[in-house]
Simulated assay, not measured.
Amino acid sequence: MKRKPQKPPTKIKMQKLSYLIVLSLLVSGIMFTVSAKPLLAVPYISSSACCLIECSSGQILYSRHAHEERQVASTTKMMTAIIAREYCRVNETAVVSSEAARTPRYVIGLRQGQKLTVEELLKAGLICSANDAAVVLAEHCAGEQALFAHLMSQKAFLLGARHTHFANASGLPNHDNYSTAYDLALIGRYLCHDPYLARIVATKQTKFKHPSYTQVIDITNSNRLLESYPGANGIKTGTTNDAGKCLVASAIRKGRHLIAVALQSGDRSGDCTRLLNYGFNNCKPVKVIDHSQIFKELRVKNGSMAYARIYPGQDLFLWQGEKDLNFEKRVKINYDLQAPIRPGQKVGALSVYVDGGLVDSTDLVSGDAVERHSNIFQRIKDIIY
């Protein structure tokens, strides 16, 4: 009985050696720890959940139960203002509906049929936390409060606030209206990047054009830190029986911007004061990536040099407090470099994560100039090895 001839293994030979030219990306994550020096301990915080972040990077400096979902009262109005800014012009005129006029306290006393601008509504909602002003904004922007709340929830998700859902624009008690200390810090951080809203939440006292009065009235910010804490510039208070007393506080000192969140607090101003003091006085920058240190040496094909030295494009820093700093490096890099290579040419990227969140990143670049080598023997050597 004749055996059928086997097919020659052509696809396993020289043909696939040419696949060395295909781009190869390596993705890796490696945990690192920087030991903390003896520093001042975190002070007593009465809040059941709290969070402190550095605003430019979003890095968490301190947290406790920061990812627990809970009622957050009128801190909800931060997102109300963000959506109103995205969907409306501040000089537009809104009309108070019968539903908005019936909004439970705290309200500024708007009546059905009254007209006022989006700008005045934003001031009333953010400075004195008027629930009726928030409802008027929602109805003006989206036609109804339910649709507006859906837009709020979508925006929160896009900002990385993955444990947040809104059911109304005011923050009045509703089991479907919840967030976390960390998510509120992210939302507050985003609000602070809007100069118009940042100016409102930093206002201690201002004039409000109430449609029921011929003269403007004074309204005072419910955030007492604006009066008592040097550098305080926002952001929002909130109080209900279910949520307790809440505060999202922001402060800037010597170019550093921190955001502190205290939820269900026995002393929200004191808690945020102690968190901010801890961040400003006790958290120091630590260099975790040095651009002058060789990150790796990569082989270069068809080059005058066999390897190119790879460096980070810039230094990267993290903020460190009383605890050891655990962070992760994630790398994407091209392992199939072909000459010529220019100095400074990007060959990959390096990202630094803390607590699973991206803090900063930099390019990986070549530190060498590698010319193309035309020697046939070198090319054969490159293919074999």
Rank of each mutant, 00 (worst) to 15 (best):
K155P: 09
K155T: 13
A156Y: 08
F157T: 15
L159D: 12
L159R: 13
G160N: 12
G160M: 09
R162P: 06
H163Y: 11
H163C: 09
H163W: 09
T164E: 03
H165E: 06
A167I: 08
A167P: 09
A167M: 05
A167R: 11
A167D: 03
N168C: 06
N168I: 00
A169R: 00
S170R: 03
S170D: 02
S170M: 01
S170G: 03
G171C: 05
L172G: 02
L172R: 03
N174A: 14
N174D: 14
D176T: 05
D176F: 06
S179L: 08
T180M: 10
T180N: 10
A181F: 06
D183L: 06
D183H: 07
D183C: 10
D183Q: 08
L186C: 11
L186Y: 06
R189K: 07
Y190V: 11
Y190A: 14
Y190G: 05
C192Y: 03
C192H: 04
C192R: 00
C192V: 00
D194V: 04
P195Y: 09
P195C: 10
P195N: 12
Y196T: 02
Y196H: 12
L197Y: 07
L197M: 09
L197G: 12
L197H: 04
A198E: 09
A198D: 11
R199A: 12
I200K: 01
V201S: 00
V201E: 00
A202Y: 11
A202V: 05
A202F: 08
A202R: 11
T203S: 06
Q205T: 13
Q205W: 00
T206Y: 02
T206S: 10
K207S: 15
F208G: 13
F208H: 11
H210A: 11
S212I: 13
S212D: 11
Y213A: 13
T214P: 13
T214D: 10
V216L: 15
V216A: 15
V216N: 15
V216F: 15
V216D: 15
I217W: 09
D218G: 12
D218A: 14
D218V: 13
D218L: 13
I219N: 07
T220V: 14
T220W: 04
N221K: 01
N221Q: 00
S222E: 11
S222T: 14
L226M: 07
L226V: 05
E227S: 13
E227I: 09
S228A: 08
S228G: 03
Y229D: 08
A232F: 05
A232Y: 04
A232V: 02
N233D: 14
G234F: 04
G234A: 07
I235M: 12
I235Y: 04
I235N: 02
T237F: 02
T237G: 01
G238R: 03
G238Y: 01
G238W: 00
G238A: 04
